[in-house]
Design a protein around this nucleic acid. Structure first.
Lengths: 145, 145
DNA sequence: GGAAAATGCTCAGTGCACTGACTAAATCTT
DNA sequence: AAGATTTAGTCAGTGCACTGAGCATTTTCC
């Protein structure tokens, strides 16, 4: 039975892409803060005082993964987590000053990193790649949204 | 300070893509065998009797991750792991009959799944997406190869 | 032939990501 | 107002993926 060419398998390629990205992230952006953690900081800059549920929709991570990621940010004093007095089920999240400061610093680094990461493609190809990945991911998330 | 649009960040998109893929995989291919495990089975169909090192290069997983994945396949009797008598450092890997049978079954399912996963794109776009991801991943892996 | 270097693997530690089961709080229904 | 349902979060369990340290076995170099 013939083996399959994994280079025609989007899942395998996606894993490689993500892996390569996270390696470069460690080298060019931060060894302390990971890309998902940055996504959370970024979401809290955009929408302060949201709860974990809303946050999880925003960054496309599920509720229990968010809980872990937020816990790590809380441990580093980058995020505060307080029980909502108006709704005892919710945790309200807010950036600390240090969290906001770190976010600012990382924004410039991620921009630089993205340039390097996508450098093998010309400008049009870069735009195409991001758009196509977005469409496939959106559609697949829709399937079990 | 303005927040960033994560949809312009390839790392974030890659993570979403991979996640969406693994969800669909569980629904359409197998709940027992994961996509990385399939990649290993597939590599062993293509190149029988290789050691873990060679395998890891082949599927782009690092040595210690491979050890884990292979251990799970061994536990399910899909793969055999034997110490190489000619070189006491190496583990020689081979598919069991059951492993080969399972691989055959999964090949047809993954083909079907890839079609569904990429359905939002037309044929040309699909080809483009795979090619562009491949180029970026290759280049990034090269950086710290 | 013996010390030094390289190679293959394992192990502990950390982080991401999911599911499924559970607790607690709010809301909806009657 | 009491019971049922929905919603937010936590916890345990599994799997992927890396780093860095360590161990054993070659191989290389004098």
């Amino acid at each position: 039975m013939a083996a399959v060419d994994l280079n025609t398998h989007p899942g395998h390629l996606a894993r490689r892409l993500q892996q390569a990205h996270s390696l470069l992230w460690g080298a060019m952006v931060s060894e302390e803060i990971t890309s998902p953690q940055f996504a959370v900081l970024n979401a809290l800059v955009e929408k302060p005082d949201i709860d974990q549920r809303t946050l999880s929709e925003h960054v496309h991570l599920d509720r229990s993964t968010i809980a872990d990621v937020v816990a790590r940010l809380v441990r580093r004093d980058l995020v505060e987590r307080v029980r909502d007095p108006h709704d005892g089920r919710r945790n309200v999240l807010k950036l600390s000053d240090e969290g906001a400061r770190l976010h600012r610093k990382l924004v410039t680094r991620t921009t630089r990193m993205n340039r390097v990461f996508l450098a093998p493609l010309d400008e049009g190809e870069q735009e195409t790649l991001l758009r196509l990945i977005g469409r496939v991911a959106d559609a697949a998330e829709e399937l079990r949204g």
